[in-house]
Write a protein that binds this DNA or RNA. Structure first.
Lengths: 124, 124
DNA sequence: ATCTTACTATCGAGCCTCGATATAATAGGC
DNA sequence: GCCTATTATATCGAGGCTCGATAGTAAGAT
């Protein structure tokens, strides 16, 4: 159990990465599209500022987790489509596992009366 | 529109706060004890650096979410015990709701929706 | 022609954690 | 009495990351 436990500092970053990688897992997309999809599919709950999204994409590409490829569609300007790599798939699976671990570990702290700690009153 | 949607930047901070407030909800504690309890009860998964914890406590106290009171036990140095205030209880309930919303909203992105069930691309 | 939309990109400011360091009081070893 | 470990609170600089603004390109609409 020598897990790196939990790094609250990078939590936001890792969640953003997980979101991007999860979208890219379904189909390759270019940056702008990622932002639009995330926002649409979550009814506006999740959003990506451009100044946040592009650095993420560049970082992930630099780490070999996604691969970008430029293309110029008939009508329109050049865009860079990103696809998940094998390493990215592995990384995503791991990140997902970590996320679920976090949620599970946090749970007993949030719900009291979980019958684990000292529950003085038998309300639950 | 009226939804603050989701702020990835403050996610770590808010999770830490939620953790602290949730512990304090069960019983008043002083700072050092919060750190010890969190670490013990999570088997070392969650930890609090002192440089992280105390600013959090001061912030929460400044916002009136927790109330600190100095006491000097027979043997030992002065300690400041923090107790959740009414405002803190409300805030915690809200933060908890937000956390669960986040988890719920994120879920469909993580688990492939309906369509993709088999990964059929070339021999894995 | 100009304005809007689609699209990629970068930079400074600001916030927050991390790790080191300081302070202080008591208990125990010697 | 002295030294160190333990309990406990507190602050500061460094670093990382998002946010919002800014910038630039190209196509299509007015």
């Amino acid at each position: 159990m020598d897990q790196p436990s939990f790094d609250s500092q990078s939590l936001g970053r890792r969640l953003n990465e997980l979101l991007v990688l999860s979208l890219l897992r379904r189909a390759p997309m270019h940056g702008y599209q990622v932002a639009v999809e995330v926002e649409e599919q979550s009814d506006g709950f999740f959003t990506f500022n451009h100044g946040t999204l592009y650095p993420i994409l560049h970082r992930l590409e630099g780490e070999g987790l996604i691969a970008g490829e430029w293309s110029v569609p008939d009508g329109g300007r050049a865009r860079k489509a990103y696809a998940l790599t094998e390493a990215g798939r592995t990384y995503r699976a791991d990140a997902l596992r970590q996320w679920k671990t976090l949620v599970g570990r946090l749970s007993p702290f949030l719900d009291d009366g979980a019958a684990v700690d000292k529950v003085s009153d038998g309300a639950a």
